[in-house]
Amino acid sequence: MSRAGDQDPLEVHIKRKTYRRVSGDDLQVLGDIALAVASGEVAALIGPSGCGKTTLLRIIVGLDVDFEGTVRLPAHGRLGVVFQEPRLLPWRTVEENVRLAAPLASDAVLDGLFGTLGLAAHRSHYPGELSVGLARRVALARAFAVEPELLVLDEPFVSLDAELATRLRGELAELVSRRPVTTLLVSHDVDEVIGLADRIFLLSGSPARLLTTMPIQNPRSARTEAEVAAIRDELSRKANTARA
């Protein structure tokens, strides 16, 4: 299924994004941000809490069109989005939630996804009956089921206990290895993404600007402890320089 390489990259050029405050004055949230994610690549977007990461994602997926700049989506721009909250339809079962978003997904694909994400026993449950961790996984399954050209995840592991977060990260890694998809993963935690991403974008505090782009050469499975530690040091040095 994967045709990595023969599809367009994701290209984002943002000059400026401001919000109109309730009080009437403008708040600039995003400054100059230019980033590109190659086809099939997993990119992570890291920045301090409240810097504008969700805002940037909303612009990329087309939910916010009130900004200066351009966004080019890969190919047909079929999107899989995992929002910061699960955003499931409470009145539909787990399976219906996934099928409504992905009407073309075959039974085999769904069986595979539910199996990988440990949801097989919960297909006929309603979201109100799920724990937060399970609901997050349903949101992941829904985003994968559409076989997206661009997968966007907004802090999908936040507020989960460390063990569960690690397991979900592993599941995500497995899914993107099995079917490579251009992915943009948002986080405010370097450690969270360092074993997952092929490329890391570091954003400054608000208004967010792109501080640095850091490609990671080795594939996920072949990264050594030392390499990961080096990347972490480099990123924190860059972040600190920006703060100073």
Binding site: E85, R87, L89, L100
Partner: peptide, 20 residues
């Protein structure tokens, strides 16, 4: 939030009405 979800997943008008 749910409406946005339906939009990014390109649900049809009818689906959005009926299920969301």
């Amino acid at each position: 939030n749910l409406e946005e979800m339906a939009r990014v997943f390109r649900m049809s008008r009818w689906k959005r009405f009926r299920h969301v």
